[in-house]
Simulated scan of single mutants.
Amino acid sequence: MAIRAARGYRTMSYEAACVLVGSIPWDIEASALASLFYWREEALARGLRPAPREIEVRRSELRQRSIDEWALRLEQPSFGVRTVEAVRPVLSQWLARQHGLLTFRLTQVLSGHGCFGGYLCRIARREPSAVCHHCDDCADEDAQHTLECCPAWAEERAELCAVVGDDLSLPTVVKAMVESETSWNAVQAFAEQVMLSKEAAERERENTTDLAIRRRRTGRRRRAYGLHLQPPQ
């Protein structure tokens, strides 16, 4: 469910998807709800009826406790490390923000699962190598290469840096996105422009290649191929 809400590929890890959509893990959420229930029951057993305001305060306290517990758990993520480590320092602000929606292409940049050489080669198994197809400088392309240094996207990157600054490490970018709707929109615009171009280039490779690994898969062949996808990272 979290992966669908994040509009990401199904190879995304559960931890990364939950962080991106701001979904506190169910076991932590259930524990908080149980604590609220037993708190009310104990009050009623003593002949007290908590006022709506008291209940709301207690609920807010338990939510913050849940966020703190989640942040502690995220200190040692199993998968989706790049995404989790970028959001964890500003987790409370990320959850409380009133702006910014995730899109399919923005999620690719934030999660690293998308049209990148490393992902297409090792996880999706759609490319024979992990090289960047848009420059000659990268033998193992990932989302950070696209965001930070691939010369093919210099123009789009200049527009992004004009808004969020020159530091394009993911934690810094995420912090800027949380603090400003303008920054969020700038990162989203970069993702939409760049990933759209990368997807078009991938389709062109699919349509003109002689390599079986690159050919578009449909029907039964696609379902069989899906069984061999790498586990979330």
Rank of each mutant, 00 (worst) to 15 (best):
M1W: 14
A2P: 01
R4T: 01
A5Q: 06
Y9E: 14
Y9S: 02
R10E: 08
T11M: 04
M12E: 00
Y14I: 10
E15Q: 01
A16F: 00
V21K: 03
V21Y: 11
W26C: 15
W26Q: 12
E29M: 15
S31V: 13
A34F: 13
L36W: 05
E41F: 11
E42T: 05
L44M: 05
A45H: 07
G47S: 06
P52H: 02
P52R: 01
P52C: 03
R53E: 11
R53Q: 05
E54N: 06
R58L: 03
S60W: 13
E61V: 08
D68C: 12
Q76G: 07
S78A: 10
F79H: 12
G80E: 00
R82F: 10
V84W: 00
A86D: 02
R88L: 02
L95W: 05
G100P: 06
G100A: 12
F104I: 00
T107H: 02
C115V: 05
G117T: 11
G117V: 06
I123Y: 09
A124T: 03
E127S: 14
A130S: 10
H134S: 07
D137P: 03
A139L: 15
Q144D: 15
Q144M: 11
T146Y: 08
E148R: 15
E148D: 06
C149T: 07
A152I: 09
W153N: 12
A154C: 09
L160P: 09
A162Y: 11
V163H: 14
V164L: 12
V164H: 15
D166V: 14
L168Y: 13
S169Q: 09
S169E: 05
V173H: 10
K175C: 15
V178L: 02
T182R: 08
W184I: 05
N185V: 15
Q188P: 10
F190K: 11
A191E: 07
A191W: 03
E192F: 06
Q193K: 14
Q193L: 07
L196D: 14
A201P: 13
R203A: 08
R205N: 02
E206H: 01
T209L: 00
D210G: 13
L211D: 05
A212R: 06
R215L: 04
R215Q: 10
R216E: 01
T218P: 10
R220H: 07
R221N: 09
L229P: 03
Q230K: 13
P231N: 12
P232Q: 09
P232A: 03
Q233H: 08
